[in-house]
Amino acid sequence: MVDTDVRLGLSGSDLAIRDRQFKADVARADESNLTPDASAEFRALVEAGLGDEIVVAKRFRGQDFLICHKGRIVDILTVMRDHPECQYNLISDILGLDLLGFEKEPRFEVVYSLYSIPLNQRIVIKAQVDEDDPTIDTASGVWEGAEWPEREIYDLFGISFNGHRDLRRIMMPDDWTGHPLRKDYPLGGEEVEFSHNVRDKTSTPPA
């Protein structure tokens, strides 16, 4: 490795740029679009008449991703759970994503990472959520375990879930303002108290 680099005579930063371009090329080569023929999950959704809901279907590093509209997300998840070729009966995780840094529309994604115990396979379903209307239907009717992670997304991202039984903040205090995992929420919030600023210290959390 070291010898090769010396022969090319590249400096450190050139190496980094070359490396980045190389990695990006590899990533593009590794990423492929899924078709209903190649993906049983995609096929199941098309069969159920939900094919139009899918925006992007791709495979990256051996992982399948289905990005879809949020409108019929509960139907999509129910198909994923019940279809004999899917059987995603275990909710591995639900998480929020704020894509502000990617400058993409819509801004938010709710990501359902699913695992099938009988078929031993994984899939990631992403539902797109607008910044103007940060709501989505709850998945707690499909898996009871979705309740707390959805509360967490509500708390930390400010996306609310229609039909949720008990939508309250879960990590932050009840009277907290703002949603800390949003990308426009600053990392440091409170001013540190010293003797010179003890009087005018305001401990209001950032909005």
Binding site: D19, A24, A27, F60, R61, S113, V124
Partner: peptide
């Protein structure tokens, strides 16, 4: 100092 730059994408 800088670290490394993984390509754009998600991984579990």
């Amino acid at each position: 100092t800088e670290g490394f730059h993984p390509p754009v994408g998600d991984a579990i």
